[in-house]
Design a protein around this nucleic acid. Structure first.
Ligand SMILES: [Mn+2]
Ligand SMILES: [Mn+2]
Ligand SMILES: [Zn+2]
Ligand SMILES: [Zn+2]
Lengths: 138, 138
DNA sequence: AGGATAAAAGCAACGCTGTTGCAAAAAATA
DNA sequence: TATTTTTTGCAACAGCGTTGCTTTTATCCT
């Protein structure tokens, strides 16, 4: 299990460091998404704030995690389960935010719909965030 | 035109003040959405930063403007053209972010689709943000 | 219109967030 | 193991967003 983490880092051409292992582990043992603040609370005593920022940024660039837009000035991050590669993400799934537990989940099996846009607009990417009550809270 | 602004404020049970008039005017003469920073640049020399924050917050509460989620820690705001009331918004349209001009637009005529969720999840609200090239830039 | 009352704006201060440059430490490489 | 490269931690900083309090402004009532 721990070697899985090392392997994933190496596969992404990243050197294996304690902070990267720890932060990646947090994502693996977490069902929902994590905001920067969450990670800092769970791993921040061990690592510097700046390291967390840089690690998240690196993971996004390498296609290990992806961002989820929010309406409250706090980006959330979640593991890419699709085959995202360095520089190019392929996460086309819907995200769910629970109004009860306030968790954010990737609905990996729910693909984003195609939207018919007015003429002149071209669609390159689409983000869908559904709010409601999650399966754990209902 | 200026009386329109006063009327809208009164209709929302808000006292008519210089800052509210000015900020509301900015939204009316703007096609796309505005971030807090934009408003501060355009009206910030006349009004305090705090006033801008409080005005935006009030406008959202009163159903005059709505927020648009982003992936870059900067909420954007746009006029509600639907019949949003105090406390309850009814904006069910798609938002568009242009990768060229970096503007955000409300596609008021494009309604958000219904998403089939896994069992256990209930849908209360849905946000759809499409990224691509807008009609002005294509 | 003028005064009383309620509401909003401005000010100051503060904590939190995210960034940058640089030196020290750790990991990869040979 | 020694060298090179990469990452981390530290310090400092700017900007964001919030809060309490005072002053100013708008509304309401006479
Ligand atoms: Mn996801
Ligand atoms: Mn809109
Ligand atoms: Zn929940
Ligand atoms: Zn454009």
């Amino acid at each position: 299990m721990n070697s899985d983490i090392k392997e994933l880092l190496k596969k992404s051409q990243l050197s294996v460091t304690a902070s990267r292992e720890k932060i990646l582990q947090l994502f693996l043992e977490q069902e929902g998404a994590l905001a920067h603040g969450d990670i800092e609370k769970k791993a921040g005593e061990k690592f510097d704030r700046v390291t967390v920022y840089r690690t998240l940024q690196t993971f996004v660039e390498k296609g290990i995690i992806h961002t989820i837009p929010t309406s409250d000035n706090s980006i959330r991050y979640a593991l890419c389960k699709d085959d995202c590669a360095s520089g190019h993400h392929h996460d086309h799934h819907v995200h769910f935010v629970c109004n009860e537990c306030n968790n954010t989940f990737c609905l990996d099996d729910v693909v984003t719909p195609t939207i018919k846009l007015p003429s002149g607009y071209s669609q390159e990417h689409i983000e869908v965030v559904v709010k409601g009550v999650c399966k754990h809270c209902s």
